[in-house]
Nucleic acid binder design. Sequence first.
RNA 1: GGGCCUGUAGCUCAGCUGGUUAGAGCGCACCCCUGAUAAGGGUGAGGUCACAGGUUCGAAUCCUGUCAGGCCCA
Length: 982
Amino acid sequence: MSQSAAENKKPSYKKTLNLPKTSFPMKANLVQNEPASLKRWSKGKLYDALKEERAGTDFAGGRFVFHDGPPYANGSIHLGHMLNKCLKDFVVRSKVMEGMSCEYVPGWDCHGLPIEHKVMQELSESGKLAKLQGLEEGARRMAVRRECKKYAEKFIKVQRVQMERLMTLADYDNPYLTMVPSYEGAVVEVFAELVERGVVYRQLKSVHWSIANETALADAELEYYDREDISVYVDFEAADAGAVYDAFGLTGEARPDQTPCFMIWTTTPWTLAANLGIAVHPRFEYVLARVDGNYTVLAEGLLEKVTKQAGAEEVEIIAKAKGEALLELRYKHPMRDAAPALAELPKVAVRHAEEGRCYRVIAAEYVTLEDGTGLVHTAPGHGSDDYITGVREKLPIYCPVNGDGTYDGTVPEKYTGMSVWDANEKVTEDLRTSGHLFYSHKFMHSYPHDWRGKTPVIFRATEQWFITVDDKAVGRSDSLREMALSATAEGVRFVPDWGRNRMRGMLESRPDWCISRQRSWGLPIPAFYDGEGKVLLTAASVRAIAKLFREEGSDAWFTMEPADLLKHYDWGDAPEGFDRATMRTGHDIFDVWFESGSSWNAVMRERSGGRDYPIDLYLEGSDQHRGWFQLSLLPALGATGVAPFKTVLTHGFMVDKNGQKMSKSLGNTLDVEDLVKEFGADVCRWWLATISYEGDIKSDHDFFRTAGEAYRKVRNTIRFMLSNLDDFTPSPPPPTPGKDCTSGEGMCVAMRDYPAESIDAWVLGEFDKMNSAVREAYGAYNFRGATELLYNFCNDTLSAVYLAAVKDRLYCDRIDSARRRLTQSTLWDLTDGITRLLAVVLPHTADEAARALRKGEDVCVHRMTFVDSFGAPCNENWSKAIDARDAALKALEDVRAKGELDNPLDAGIAMPDPEGVLAVFDAVDLADLMGVSRVTLGGADVEVQDLRGEARCERSWKRDGTVRERSDGGMLSDRDAGAVGV
RNA sequence: GGGCCUGUAGCUCAGCUGGUUAGAGCGCACCCCUGAUAAGGGUGAGGUCACAGGUUCGAAUCCUGUCAGGCCCA
């Protein structure tokens, strides 16, 4: 008590210090303050202003063409959207800060089943659907389309607000939407190019088919219910017994004198009428077995199960062979003498087919040993796998079933007109009678049903539109697949590089692209059919529709008469004999991937008259290798001959902290809006910038907290610099070096006037290195590297080293001393440079700081560019000084650990300097750098001196050897006495 | 089942074409400062590089397999 009373009598110097002062708060309050930034930018038309000025000659930074992939206009954005949009924003902002022109036109994918499905459900629940059933088809489709459009618009609005809240700098006032007329027209124009190239064709394909509604269904329209069916094991007699025995290596005496059978299994006996092949797994082991006197072939692994189930009494394995050995063996169809002749089948069923390929054993990898016999009955017209196998094996896509579920006239007469459901029993019965049935039983299983009618669905081949990937395009010597593979191999850059492998693998194995869907909510495929079923779809007719869609929108397809739809068509290339009188429109719409896959044309070529093509960068999740990337590449190559993108960048998927996928049902998701509300967009963005996005991205609520702490560290460093610039204005002209500045004169020091030995020159040099490294990292899309550099610079170079060292002169020097002004000048430049670098990741905070730096001037950091190198002359020995600092700190820590000296200002350091490299520096600078009162050079080892016996300056707390009692009664060092004026 | 990818300190990640005691940040522990203070600084302890084989004088790094996870197919 008495001591403090004594101290009170002494002069207090605290108010004579230049202590930090700033309006830039320590607490960011992002959640409250970010919206104000957004409002300010929006009021200042930031996006438009940037677009305009960067396009001009003042910013000759070049042009970077980025193209946003359209998210689906459905629901709120999730963590994946947040990652995707923010990464895009980092790219765009870093290009803009480099002085480049870089537009970010956001888009939305509007058409498609998920919306239509949801709308149909809502209509169904509200009872409106029943009313629609009474309408004529076109009117009904239009009613659904109107609802879908409203639905899409609603979620575009929702998502837009959410994306803007993430502070992404994009043209949200002018987005591209795949459902607007100009976009639709441009997509159809791409289609016209492909038609002209001859890569568009029509063919049957097996799809889910609702008999009740006579319509094709997508996977999402199926619901699975239990259903009782017949499971049948059927013997298909071999056509050539000798060939089968050869395959099993049986010769002479060893050969049975009976004809063996291939035993297949199916739960849809009605499809046997359309059977064209038997699939085996080439690597599985098969046996020739004698089962109750009959010789039959089936998989070894299923022999016991099947025969036991059927209650066979005598089972004997005669021989074994790999599936591979059975390939190409022939069999006799149990219900018909010959396969349907290709000539009698519709053209669309036989495009890939070759005569005489039916009733063979063929290979398929999907054959399993779970159920059945290991020999899979294959009917290309009635199964998904069967279809693919059929196309590959050049089988016709034979489909003897009408839309109403009855057999047509190509099956044995007794079945014609029969419903397939009735046929199940009848066929089974007939096979039993004819001796082909090995075994049958009824069983319950999960079976797909129409979600609306709850009726069971079947697979049925229907006519679809395709884009061929293997036929050569007209006027070219290569196919789309070949073009795409060569673009993938050479022209396109992939980030990360393995994207190339992934794309190649997918291209190599992909089948022809089925681009048609049988839905309402989409872009119609502009095909017309006459009464005979003849098709009108030519380059010119398609272009005519494209023009019309641009004028009227694709709704016209459902509201206008065919003749009016074709008003821009001159009929020059119409197919011969096409009957215009009976012409009607087709009901197919495009696969939505064709629409989004044409955005390079509908958005990018459209807006720039071709200048912005090909595009510099596509950036999406790694699932888009198969999606948007590939399905943009194919149409673009077909239409323009070049890949639409120069670089493809992919990011991984968000997973939970244990690496498991995130899903609502698992309850391990994080809500974007909640995160933004809790942490603010800048903190979320900081986290996103610091992750390595190439692979899976683990995310957890805690990670955002950690990011918040890192954010605060950076923020505090900036705040500390700002707080030491309160009395500083960087006004020209620069002061004369060495001469003290007075307010009113310029306070800024010109770079060339920096003393090379000053710590300020050193820190500016460090900034230059960091600045160019960060810019390089941004350029390489390495945001993690960039934020790491920035973080370390703020914490290490600045907070721990430089700012700690210059505190003394900032606080204690006379307010206008040359040394202090030099440091302030440096602080100003550092803050300026750092805020510009941070503007990419922390748009709000960087702008807040940039404005605080300029004391309320109405500026915007986002209109600026990165600073160039400061280039202050710097003594090359500074790295040695930093080494010396490390050595000093270590020595101080050792002393402190022994409990000898706690406060470094009570210490001096004796530092060896054998090469004399430290001697060039000011001793006070070195002392400040090491945080001690005094540094002397020389000696053999680093030595800590206890200065507690010397007087301590009551103002600066240093014991620098100049401290003595002054006229005011205080103990002050020379410098402090001067500053106080005593 | 197939293609592509991932698996390094408690956590998030660096570790180039194989070469001395495997690095960083966070967290943690201990300490300092109290004129950046719901701040700042220092020191330190943490790793059988998923597992099992193999190639090599030598492997976190190359090869094979296993396990776990992700995306896309089937």
